[in-house]
Amino acid sequence: MSTAGRWIPNQHGAWAMLAVPYAAGVLLGDPTWTQIPLFAAWLLAYTAAFHVQQWLRLRRLSRNPRAAARHVRPALVLGGLCAAVGVPLAVAEPWLLLAAAAMAPFLAVNAWHARINRERALLNGLAAVVPACGMLLVALRLGGGTLAEGLAPALVCLLYFAGTVPYVKTMIRERKSQTYKRGSIAYHAAALIAATALNPWLALPFAVYLGRAALLPGRGLKVAVVGAVEVGCSLLLLGFVVGVYG
Rank of each mutant, 00 (worst) to 15 (best):
A139N: 05
S184R: 05
M135Q: 05
L140R: 10
A108V: 15
V109G: 06
L123S: 14
L142H: 03
A128F: 07
A189F: 15
G125K: 04
G163V: 06
R118D: 13
E149Y: 10
Y160Q: 08
M171W: 08
A152E: 13
A102N: 03
Y187T: 04
A148L: 12
A101K: 04
C133W: 04
L136F: 09
G134H: 05
R118V: 00
L137T: 01
Y167S: 02
Y187E: 11
L142Y: 07
A195L: 12
Y187H: 06
L142Q: 02
C133L: 03
G145K: 13
T146W: 06
M135S: 05
N199H: 15
A139W: 10
V129K: 03
A190V: 10
R118W: 01
I185W: 13
R115N: 04
G145E: 11
A111G: 03
R175K: 14
N110S: 15
G143Y: 10
L122I: 02
P131A: 00
L159F: 12
L140Q: 08
V138R: 03
G143K: 06
A121C: 03
T170K: 06
A132T: 02
Y187K: 03
L137H: 00
V156T: 07
A190C: 11
L147K: 09
C133E: 00
A195N: 09
H188T: 06
G150S: 03
M135I: 01
W112Y: 14
T179K: 10
P131L: 01
A132W: 09
I193W: 13
L137N: 01
T146V: 02
H188Y: 11
I172V: 14
S177R: 11
Y187R: 04
L107D: 00
E149V: 05
I172T: 14
H188G: 09
A152F: 08
V168N: 02
L192F: 11
A128R: 04
A186W: 13
A139R: 06
A197F: 13
L123V: 14
N124M: 09
L126F: 04
V130F: 14
N117S: 14
A148D: 07
R118N: 09
A195P: 14
Y187A: 07
W201Q: 13
A102Q: 03
L151H: 02
L159E: 10
V165Y: 11
V130H: 11
A139H: 07
L158D: 12
M103R: 01
K176P: 00
A111D: 13
A102T: 01
P166G: 05
L198D: 06
L151G: 05
R115P: 00
V156P: 15
A189L: 15
G145P: 01
N117G: 13
G163S: 10
N110Y: 13
A194Q: 07
V138Q: 02
P153H: 05
A191I: 01
A152T: 08
P131R: 04
L198Y: 11
A194G: 04
Y167C: 01
F161L: 14
P105S: 05
A121G: 07
I193L: 15
L142R: 00
